[in-house]
Simulated assay, not measured.
Amino acid sequence: MDLKRWIAMGLGVLADSREVGRLLKQHPDRVRAGRDWLLVEEEQDNDSRELRHLALWRRRTWNAADAVEPYERLVAVRERAWGADHPLVLDTRLGLAAVRAEAGDVAGAGTTYEHLLSDMVRVLGEEHPRIPWVRRNLAHWRKTKHWVPPPLPRMNDLEGRAREDALRDEPHDTAVMRHLAQVRWRQGDEVGAVEAYEHVLAERLRAWGPDHDVVLVTRLTMADMRAEAGDVAGALEAYENLLADMVRVHGPEHRGTRWTRHKLTQWRGLSGGSSLHGR
């Protein structure tokens, strides 16, 4: 094969790679998993769609007490549609446990996590990444007697202007996972969004290193996501670890350090009562 033909083939492969990357960046549905397509199908049923939107709207407008009932109904609807052991049904029960805690029913949240842990281990196995999530929150709510939840982070978009320098030159596969996380978030699949965004954080760690501002702010977003997804124990751990690194990298009075400390205090439930909820 002559040199010109090799060069032509190489250029063709490069062009194809760029085109694939462009399409992936524009169309995150190319990497949607089975869970994503099930949620898309669910959107076609008016009753299910309205129930999901009601549950999400109540929870995301800090009305967790009134969100418990639609979340319970959503679990029942999905159990009938997909079976009690479907991973998305288990994840919906994970969301219900979080809503119970946010509604002030700490004991009820602990009981829900306890029952869920048994079912998740049976269905998914001990090594599944959801198991540590459930275990740490079960332990957390067992020892918590009273908790005043802060407002959930408003996360219509998972990242703000602080990310612009990273987003411009983001590799296509990382950008796709970020877009997928946003799609899942809008669908109300917070647990799946956390899963997707963990890949984004891992890629940025590789690209930028652990002490880069891009990575530190991404970790802050990740902690916020865990908090809204209901992984309060995981969020507290993430805020604590990030705070230590913020102090080491930027010092105790840096705005990022102070904000991380504020978020940690909020989610510990120590920052004081209903004024946090804007009521």
Rank of each mutant, 00 (worst) to 15 (best):
D2F: 02
V13H: 02
A15T: 15
S17G: 06
R18C: 13
E19M: 14
V20I: 13
L24G: 11
E42C: 08
E43F: 14
N46T: 15
S48Y: 07
R49S: 10
R49A: 12
E50T: 08
L51P: 04
L51F: 00
A55P: 00
W57E: 08
R58D: 01
N63V: 07
A65L: 08
A65G: 09
V68K: 06
L74E: 00
A76V: 06
A81K: 10
W82E: 06
G83P: 04
V89S: 06
L90Q: 02
G95Q: 07
A101E: 04
A103S: 15
V106D: 01
A107T: 06
E114F: 05
E114S: 15
H115Y: 06
S118K: 11
S118Y: 07
M120V: 10
V121S: 01
V123A: 12
V123Y: 01
V123S: 09
P129M: 03
K143M: 04
P153G: 04
D157P: 00
G160I: 04
A166I: 11
R168P: 00
R168D: 10
D173K: 05
T174F: 01
V176N: 02
H179Y: 10
A181I: 06
G188I: 05
G188V: 01
D189K: 03
E198L: 12
E198F: 04
L201Q: 08
L201N: 10
L205G: 02
D211G: 07
H212Q: 13
V215Y: 04
M225L: 14
L236C: 08
E237K: 15
L242Q: 02
L243V: 14
L243Y: 08
A244R: 14
D245C: 08
R248I: 09
R248A: 10
G251K: 12
W259P: 00
H262A: 13
Q266G: 07
G269N: 07
G269D: 13
L270C: 04
S271V: 09
S275T: 15
